[in-house]
Design a protein around this nucleic acid. Structure first.
Lengths: 150, 150
DNA sequence: TTTTGTGCAAATTGTTTGCAACACG
DNA sequence: CGTGTTGCAAACAATTTGCACAAAA
């Protein structure tokens, strides 16, 4: 969690490419790192560190360290979808931002561009550059909003 | 954290009023609860459970339970301002929503109405009812956005 | 005097750190 | 080989829970 999305995203789409980037950065390409990268590139949804540790049989501590390293290289990012653990995904595979329903937990994943209008309003009114990739927009989805009064 | 802002806000502005509401709800008005309410109504900014425990000399566990009870009554709400502990404030005193800068940590507290335009865009485009009182809009404030390239 | 609520200690969850052994380059 | 990395255990932060005891009503 040291790296919040301050690092430029990198268009890397496979564990092998990721390995190349690591090597180029003077880092060692270890079995653990390779496994974490593979798990992330194989998954279609963001994964928690716990899930990655389970999937790779690796130690959570190392998984967290690996994720942090990969994040520092711009290969991976994490998002906080409400309460609960952070979720990690490859930056290339996920130029996405999220809308999360507090009620049913449903998440709407969108290409960042689709939230540009929202961003524009926030920028115009508050000079604030909103980013919904690290912390999403939280509220109630159409279905839940329709269903109950609140 | 059991109660997320699903509970209707109540226009209560003092610990005494809060006590009345508790009693009316069939709950006991204890020294601990009174102290937590007082701390919250006295503060101008949202407080963490830790801060309340410190300020009141109470036990964190009880403070959390009290906060949860008060939240269930619609007297109090909490917001997650980025990483770190949740912050609690009276609902009446705080019909606010937040913009939080990831870079400098600065927070902009606004009356909820001031984010209605943003909410409208989100509703129109995604049928999604955004709520920035439980999870704020996160990004970079004008100053930080101007300062560094990113 | 009967519940409801408190304080304390211990468990939980998510994440970080210290350190000796290990393995990449 | 030498240093960056790992694995394990332990520390940590935020929050929750179990339980005997205290205190509202």
């Amino acid at each position: 969690m040291t790296h919040s999305h301050n690092v430029p995203a990198r268009q890397v789409r496979s564990a092998e490419e990721a390995a190349r980037v690591m090597r180029a950065a003077g880092l060692r390409v270890t079995a653990s790192r390779r496994a974490v990268a593979q798990a992330l590139f194989a998954a279609s949804d963001p994964l928690t560190a716990e899930q990655i540790a389970e999937a790779t049989g690796g130690d959570p501590a190392s998984v967290y360290r690996n994720l942090d390293t990969l994040e520092g290289l711009g290969l991976v990012r994490h998002v906080h979808l409400g309460h609960g653990p952070g979720c990690y995904s490859p930056t290339a595979q996920d130029e996405r931002e999220y809308l999360v329903c507090e009620e049913c937990g449903d998440r709407l994943a969108l290409p960042a561009a689709r939230l540009d209008a929202v961003r524009a309003v926030v920028r115009d009114e508050f000079g604030f550059e909103a980013r919904f990739s690290h912390f999403p927009i939280v509220g109630r989805c159409a279905r839940c909003a329709a269903a109950s009064p609140g």
